[in-house]
């Protein structure tokens, strides 16, 4: 019927990792709900959820790496991974698009509307940035041309270094991969440190009306994504040191670099619409 050499789409055997993942997320969500309800047990349950989740990620990705190294993935499986990553990044794009949409709506419709209506808060001038008409709070917004501009340069350079590492991978120069990835991780870490410095010294908080809310929500979620991307780069660097990846087959590397470029593009949008304009 079929010779054993025919390529067959790899179908994994039954796995216990997904149910572990579900237990992890249910635990994490329960802990978070209890934390929000000011229960002392909340953070501990969240911690337990995180640990289960981490165990699941190690186990599941570990399985995938083993299967990859055992040569189970043919070109068709590789294409599945590519499509999967493309649509995952698209879903992330839509996530950020939602928050950018909220920002644009607030700046162009909600705040001007409040300024035009003189019913509850007469004399509210509107304009951007604003903490809204009802909060008696003076604050100074984050200037664009200090740390944020520097961070833009840093993140764009990290996009270049990860591409340089990819060229090294294609050419089989392993020192170049390692150096490029290490530089990318370093730049990502510097970005995060500077971002943390900026947060600590900000002259407003997430409670500072819509300006604080949109600022911290957008930059905060971006920061979480940079952190995740950097962690993924660390894993990839570890795998390079373990001798994984060939110039022909290295989709895990490409997936993470796609993700990194996506995070980069989101930052450019942030720089323009949150910091600058």
């Amino acid at each position: 019927m079929m010779s054993t050499n025919d390529p067959v789409y790899y179908l994994p055997p039954p796995s216990r990792w997904p149910i572990v993942g579900s237990v992890a997320l249910l635990t994490l969500a329960t802990g978070f709900i209890l934390y929000l309800a000011k229960s002392a047990a909340g953070p501990w349950i969240m911690l337990a959820g995180c640990l289960i989740l981490a165990r699941m990620l190690f186990g599941w990705f570990g399985n995938v790496v083993q299967e990859s190294n055992a040569g189970r993935f043919d070109g068709q499986v590789d294409r599945s991974f590519r499509w999967g990553m493309v649509w995952f990044i698209f879903s992330e794009v839509m996530f950020f698009a939602g928050f950018f949409g909220a920002l644009f709506y607030i700046r162009n419709i909600a705040v001007p509307g409040l300024a035009d209506a003189d019913l509850i808060w007469p004399g509210y001038p509107g304009g951007w940035p604003t903490a809204g008409p009802g909060l008696k709070e003076s604050f100074s917004p984050m200037p664009a041309w200090g740390i944020p501009a520097l961070n833009t340069v840093i993140l764009l350079s990290s996009g270049a270094t990860v591409t340089w590492a990819h060229w090294g991978l294609l050419a089989g120069r392993r020192w170049q991969i390692k150096l490029g990835l290490a530089l990318t991780i370093l730049l990502g870490a510097i970005f995060l440190v500077l971002q943390a410095y900026e947060y600590i010294h900000a002259e407003f908080t997430i409670r500072t009306g819509v300006y604080g809310a949109t600022f911290f929500m957008l930059t905060g979620f971006h920061g979480v994504h940079v952190t995740l991307g950097a962690l993924m780069l660390v894993v990839i660097l570890g795998r390079v040191f373990a001798g994984h990846f060939t110039p022909r087959q290295h989709f895990a590397f490409e997936a993470v670099s796609w993700y990194w470029h996506f995070v980069d593009v989101v930052w450019l949008m942030l720089f323009v619409f949150v910091y600058w304009l």
Partner: peptide, 23 residues
């Protein structure tokens, strides 16, 4: 945004902070 308005003091849907429930 609902969750942060509930617990973390954001004003996405609160006109006093410049937000809007219509958002």
């Amino acid at each position: 945004m609902l969750l942060t308005d509930r617990h973390f003091g954001t004003h996405f849907f609160d006109a006093a902070g410049g937000g809007d429930p219509v958002l």
